[in-house]
Design a protein around this nucleic acid. Structure first.
Lengths: 187, 187
DNA sequence: ACTTTTGTAGAGTGATTAGTCAATCTGACA
DNA sequence: TGTCAGATTGACTAATCACTCTACAAAAGT
């Protein structure tokens, strides 16, 4: 693994366990197995590091979840696909999701980072718009649907991380998806 | 206002805007209008301050939301009461809710604080248990319902803080509550 | 082969910070 | 009035930290 990725990995692990202020850049460098100066070669400041990491992870989640969704026709199945892929990503990378949740609204994340990340979510917003116009999704403000759906997904992943055996209980997972789908589907 | 409360107020404001590491205790003291030493008279460490503040706010939210709910009979109305009171608290104290969301899963919050806060949520858990046994709430694990319901509430408050005019649109608020209730009610 | 760019190292530094401490103040109670 | 516990102050300190700087190594370009 190259040094940049090692730094990302070390930062992810330390930020989630000790917090931003609780992890000196020196500790990140040490954990990553690189010199102090190397860290600052790749990232101008500590803040740039956390922002880059955030963008990287958000991208990773979306890219991996979306891959293959275009082959599916029905909206419900599309949603189920995205939902379960997102959850799968979380279950294989719990730290990463934890990081996202922890820093999503933190003051270390700059507004320009937030803007960049907002672009990524377009995929989902388009899907929702489409669903609304076809009358399959409730006609409420898109922002609201989006926030609520993602919060709901976060809640579910939190539960699954705490109760991992449920993840392999397909009956449970089915109920779980419906818990998600019921909010947004038009009755 | 006494000095302890002034410190709480200053800490709330600074922590949410600058983050935990971004606010020196000296800044908290200065904003609160007290001497540096006074802060450490009331709170042994900076960490104790953030933990006390967290507990204080969580308590405030629950106490203010729950007040009066016992007079209501129907489960749905009880939930609507709690839901709208929680939202009302958030709309009148957006900073406080923001603080809670920001630090809920942060490493500065110790596990003993988390335990203390968990006790507070018993009121809600009892309500859910009751609803399940009466067949009014979906029969899924309580922890799951609780997490999902609270995440959903958080999502709604986020939306309302960003779109405050909707808070006074009673038709919207009705739809919004149903968005909440639909997840948990048995069909 | 030579030059330029990029990567890597780690000691060093100036600034900042959490927490201490000794001193003074306040007010309650005898 | 005198005593005492708690409140308040702010200067001080020991430690820490983000970031710089200089030097060298490796690659890439020409």
């Amino acid at each position: 693994m190259n040094k940049e990725d090692k730094i990302y990995e070390a930062a992810l692990s330390l930020f989630t366990t000790k917090g931003f202020h609780g992890t000196p850049t020196s500790a990140i460098a040490k954990t990553a197995g690189v010199a102090n100066g190397t860290l600052f070669h790749y990232f101008k400041t500590k803040e740039e590091l956390i922002n880059s990491l955030y963008i990287k992870l958000k991208n990773e989640l979306v890219v991996e979840s979306v891959d293959g969704v275009e082959k599916i026709d029905s909206l419900k199945l599309k949603l189920e696909f995205l939902w379960s892929k997102s959850i799968h990503w979380t279950m294989t990378n719990p730290k990463k999701m934890f990081f996202i949740q922890q820093y999503m609204y933190s003051p270390y994340i700059t507004s320009s980072t937030q803007e960049e990340v907002d672009k990524i979510k377009e995929v989902y917003v388009d899907l929702i718009k489409n669903g609304i116009s076809k009358g399959e999704i409730k006609d409420v403000p898109i922002d609201l649907i989006y926030i609520i759906a993602s919060q709901q997904l976060f809640g579910m992943t939190q539960y699954l991380v705490m109760n991992p055996e449920k993840y392999h209980d397909s009956e449970f997972m089915n109920t779980a998806f419906n818990l998600f789908y019921d909010i947004i589907k038009k009755v």
